[in-house]
Nucleic acid binder design. Structure first.
Length: 739
DNA sequence: AATGCGATGCCTTAT
DNA sequence: GCATCGCATT
């Protein structure tokens, strides 16, 4: 651990007035500078109340506050440290009524958004096949990220039929969001910027309050965040942004790397400080990272260096399939743990996509290695959690039609789709909320005996509203929901393993409610719901429980681990096939930055691995070694006998990786060191699944290849002659078609 | 209205 | 390989 601040760090800490850009390489003590800077400001007599620090995750915010607190022992609670989203939520809770929303608005997550889009498409009679929700969602999201209103979008769409259709959805979607008194994630930013734009008095209030602004991970800010920061900083111009252009990895969600690259143009009087000394990783790991990232063009020039020892070489292994890869990761993990007396929590297994976690999980489970998976299906995204939350949201905001529709027949009350549609129709005509329409169910035409069922439901909601005002705590209210709905009872009655785990999840949610109530100064249902809406998976990462961590490289940004496994290092996975096929240089550079982020998470040991064959959406595919692995100088890598192949030029290695022999691992006797043998007498230009031709037997498909030392034993299923096993050197099989 | 079945289509990455 | 969706059945 670094003892005292180095010169540039010190300079950054003591810079008080005017714009400041801190280019902080990975592991260069960024958080340290931020926390010291806040502490320094307070020591200099500044009011902590005037300081705003924006971080990427709630977890990071908590850490900043904690560290400032431990440095000063006071004052930190008055510093406003939060993420962009929670900053906006808190501002809007106070002032959103100025722009026509109710301050008890609901926050919609991606799932809610999707439902609403679906409803909207139906209403506009647009074909979801022509306009997939996915596409619409990203269009709307990108519009909002660029502060483009529906009418502006429509204006720009003129002449482009497709865009004009999307403009219709965007417009109707926003109307519905407004009617539901709901905001999605993008709206939180959008509405705040809009509020500040339309109400300069409100903006000035916050400008006065936030005289000193710090933004972390600035390279991942998008346009709307840029605008928000610019608004807030305009008056006092005491803006300090910290970031690393090499770690910009969120282009897909609108992050604009130009925000950091052009900071000096936006603020010509900006001071620029570079932090280039890395305190995290060994020299070998750092050099590998430097080598990879140096392949990108158009970056701020900066070279990370370290005083640390070389350390161990990076490990690289190619396996036959993803099961073997997972198996060996588990094996090497245990080996390292025992050899160097490490904790499980010293390890992270990182991958490109969440889908890769399943196989890893399976093998860890088999070997009794405690682990925790972050990301993917979020806890709060689970069905039962969303159901219970929908009850809470309905009580908190009766305009939230989406939540009401979600729970009106959950648990089953015999209220079906047709009834819901009729009521929906009625609500639309009367221009009232869905819940209000439910209250007037007797006036809704065409509702027969379902009316009494609906009335039972509305009574339930009214009772719950009474419960909330009558109950002493939110936990008590929570139990009222469970009791009155019978949700939990129904699950218990099911007696299945799945239902049981849902019950457990509900219990966990209950704990969360209790926890919130203990921590909050003035607990309220609204605040509880917003906290839940904005919580991210890594926020709950807790290094004190001794488990291996599994997550995507994206989620791992900002984290560090003594030992890191980067798996699935294959062209087609990482970089992904989309990126490779598109031929887009910018996209490829972003993938490379992601790789850079992955490598620089490791402090001492880095294991890279890939698999020759892998199941991807149902079918098996073969992937060559990732080009990024090949960008690492071979002297930094220990790859057993495979090093030769790595040294070859990229184009030739691609060829070579197809010819390379199949190797088999006996899990009971895991190999040390030399895993690969490249110098074989015979090489095969075909693999499992390929169609081959034999002089005598004709065509067939290769089903198995066994490494028999000098030769390969190849099993082929011939079209006419059945399955034959033969030695490759005699068979002289000719490849016809790849699988 | 609820259930169950086969067909479809789809995968980055996440607040 | 998985989840979602539409359809037919009870």
């Amino acid at each position: 651990m670094q003892m005292k601040l180095n010169a540039p760090q010190q300079e950054a800490v003591e810079h008080i007035n005017g714009p400041l850009l801190i280019l902080a390489g990975a592991g260069s003590g960024k958080t340290r500078v931020i926390t010291h800077r806040i502490a320094y400001f307070i020591e200099q007599g500044m009011d902590p109340y005037n300081i705003l620090a924006i971080t990427f995750t709630n977890k990071a915010a908590g850490e900043v506050r904690e560290r400032v607190d431990s440095m000063l022992g006071y004052g930190s609670e008055r510093v406003w440290v939060s993420t962009f989203h929670s900053l906006c939520v808190r501002i809007l809770r106070r002032h959103i009524d100025r722009i026509g929303y109710n301050t008890n608005y609901t926050i919609y997550d991606t799932d809610d958004q999707k439902r609403l889009i679906k409803e909207t498409l139906l209403y506009l009679q647009m074909d979801p096949k022509m306009y997939p929700e996915r596409l619409i969602m990203s269009e709307i999201s990108h519009a909002k990220e660029n502060f483009i209103t529906p009418s502006e979008y429509d204006l720009a769409a003129q002449g482009d039929y497709r865009k004009m259709q999307i403009a219709r959805v965007y417009t109707e979607y926003q109307i519905r969001m407004h009617n539901n008194n709901a905001l999605d994630f993008d709206d939180l930013l959008f509405k705040t910027v809009q509020l500040f734009q339309d109400y300069p008095d409100v903006l000035e209030m916050y400008q006065e309050r936030f005289r000193y602004i710090m933004v972390d991970e600035y390279q991942d800010t998008n346009t709307i965040q840029f605008l928000l920061v610019r608004q807030l900083a305009r008056k006092y111009r005491n803006l300090c942004v910290v970031g690393d252009d090499d770690q910009s990895i969120y282009k897909f969600r609108g992050a604009n790397i130009m925000n950091i690259l052009n900071f000096e143009e936006e603020y010509p009087d900006a001071t620029v400080i570079k932090l280039e000394q890395n305190y995290r990783s060994t020299a070998n790991i750092l050099n590998a990272a430097n080598a990879v990232i140096s392949n990108n063009e158009g970056r701020k020039d900066k070279v990370l260096w370290t005083e640390q020892e070389d350390g161990d070489k990076l490990q690289f292994k190619q396996y036959e399939n993803e099961y073997q890869e997972a198996e060996m990761i588990a094996y090497y993990l245990l080996e390292e743990k025992i050899k160097n007396r490490r904790n499980y929590s010293d390890f992270a297994i990182l991958y490109r996509m969440n889908a890769q976690s399943r196989v890893l999980e399976e093998k860890l489970l088999m070997k009794n290695i405690p682990y925790r998976i972050y990301g993917g299906q979020n806890f709060y995204g689970r069905m039962e959690i969303k159901d219970i939350l929908a009850y809470m949201k309905t009580v908190a905001n009766s305009y939230d039609d989406l939540s009401v529709k979600r729970i009106i027949n959950v648990p089953k009350r015999g209220i079906g789709v047709s009834t819901i549609q009729k009521i929906d129709q009625y609500a639309l005509q009367m221009n009232i909320s869905f819940l209000d329409a439910l209250y007037q169910v007797e006036d809704v035409p065409g509702i027969g005996k379902a009316a009494s069922k609906v009335q039972k439901f509305t009574e339930l909601i009214m009772d719950l509203k009474d419960d909330l005002s009558g109950s002493r705590s939110l936990a008590e209210f929570f139990d009222c929901i469970l009791d009155r709905t019978g949700y939990q009872e129904e699950l218990i009655a099911e007696h299945t393993e799945e239902a049981l785990s849902r019950v457990e999840n509900i219990d966990e949610l209950r704990n969360k409610v209790i926890q919130y109530e203990e921590d909050a100064e003035t607990p309220s249902l609204e605040e509880l719901l917003e906290e839940i809406a904005l919580i991210s998976d890594v926020d709950s990462l807790n290094s004190s429980d001794d488990r291996v961590v599994l997550m995507t490289i994206h989620s791992a940004k900002g984290l560090e681990f003594p030992c890191v496994f980067l798996c699935g290092m294959e062209d087609g996975i990482f970089p992904g096939s989309m990126t490779i096929n598109s031929g887009n240089t910018e996209d490829m550079e972003e993938e490379r930055r992601l790789c850079y982020v992955g490598i620089t998470r490791a402090k001492q040991k880095l294991y890279l691995s890939c698999s020759r064959q892998r199941m991807m959406h149902g079918s098996s595919s073969r992937n060559p070694i990732s080009r990024f692995v090949k960008e690492i100088p071979s002297e930094l890598i220990d790859a057993g006998g495979f090093r030769t192949a790595l040294n070859q030029p990229v184009t030739r290695v691609d060829e070579a990786s197809r010819v390379a022999p199949v190797f088999k691992v006996d899990p009971s006797k895991p190999p040390f060191g030399r895993t690969f043998t490249v110098n074989k007498a015979v090489t095969l230009d075909y693999g499992i699944g390929d169609t081959v031709e034999h002089v005598k037997f004709g065509q067939g498909v290769v089903t198995e290849i066994v490494n028999g030392g000098k030769d390969y034993e190849v099993t082929v299923e011939f079209d006419k002659y059945g399955t034959k096993r033969m030695f490759a050197s005699f068979a002289k099989l000719k490849k016809l078609e790849e699988s």
